[in-house]
Amino acid sequence: MEQHHRRPAAGFHRASGRQRQCDGGWIDYLDFDPGKTQICLSVGRLIHDDDCVKVLAGSAMLVGDEDLHISGIIEIPARCVVSIVRLEEKKP
């Protein structure tokens, strides 16, 4: 006996005045508004610096005499970096 697999048909109705949207936050290309550029400030130890990427560590800890452990790694594309400012502690 031969089996036939059929896909169920689905009908969609659009409510008047509402635009159809895909699930997952997708929007129609014509509705895209890029908005203003965001300016972010990141503070940390600069642990890697080249023409491709700047890498910051938010925290660093010396374990024992020589083992340096880092956490809070932030990778920033170099072309997005506007400036790098060295922070210095003010002496009272």
Rank of each mutant, 00 (worst) to 15 (best):
P34V: 07
Q19C: 07
V53F: 01
C40I: 08
C52Y: 02
L62H: 03
A10F: 04
E89I: 06
A78W: 03
D23W: 02
A78M: 10
I39Y: 09
L68C: 10
H13Y: 09
C40V: 11
L30N: 13
S42Q: 13
A10S: 12
D65G: 13
L41W: 02
W26M: 02
L30P: 06
E88Y: 02
Y29T: 11
R18M: 11
H69S: 15
C40D: 04
G72N: 02
S71W: 00
A10Y: 05
A15I: 13
I76K: 04
D28T: 14
R79M: 11
A78K: 11
V81C: 04
E89R: 11
P8L: 11
V82Q: 08
L56P: 04
Q3A: 15
H4I: 15
H13E: 10
D50Q: 00
L68R: 06
F32V: 08
G35D: 01
C52V: 12
R86C: 03
A60Y: 04
C80G: 01
V82G: 08
D49L: 10
G58Y: 05
H69C: 15
Q3M: 15
R20E: 09
Q38A: 13
Q21N: 05
R7D: 09
L87W: 03
C80E: 07
A9D: 09
W26Y: 09
V63I: 10
S71A: 08
P77M: 01
R79L: 12
K91N: 12
V43C: 04
I39Q: 12
E66F: 06
K54H: 08
T37C: 08
G25P: 05
V63N: 11
Y29D: 09
I27D: 01
A57R: 01
D33R: 08
A9Q: 15
E66C: 12
L68H: 04
V43K: 05
D33C: 02
R6V: 11
L68D: 07
A15L: 12
R7T: 14
V63E: 12
G72T: 02
H4N: 13
C80L: 12
R14C: 14
R14P: 03
D33W: 04
A60N: 10
I47R: 05
H5T: 14
Y29P: 09
A15R: 10
M1D: 13
G44D: 03
C40P: 00
V82P: 01
C22V: 12
L41Y: 03
E2N: 11
I73W: 00
I27Y: 01
P77Y: 00
V43E: 06
I84Y: 13
V63T: 10
V43G: 02
R20D: 12
C22W: 00
S59Q: 13
H13G: 14
D28K: 10
D51L: 04
H13W: 07
K36A: 14
A57T: 06
K54R: 13
S16Y: 13
Q3Y: 01
Q3V: 14
I39S: 11
A78Y: 06
G72Q: 02
G58D: 03
I76W: 00
I73R: 05
E88P: 03
K91Q: 10
Q19I: 06
T37W: 01
G11F: 03
E2L: 09
L87V: 03
D31P: 01
K91S: 15
P8E: 10
A57C: 04
C22D: 08
H4Q: 14
D49V: 10
A9L: 12
A57Y: 00
P77S: 04
Y29N: 07
R18S: 07
V85L: 05
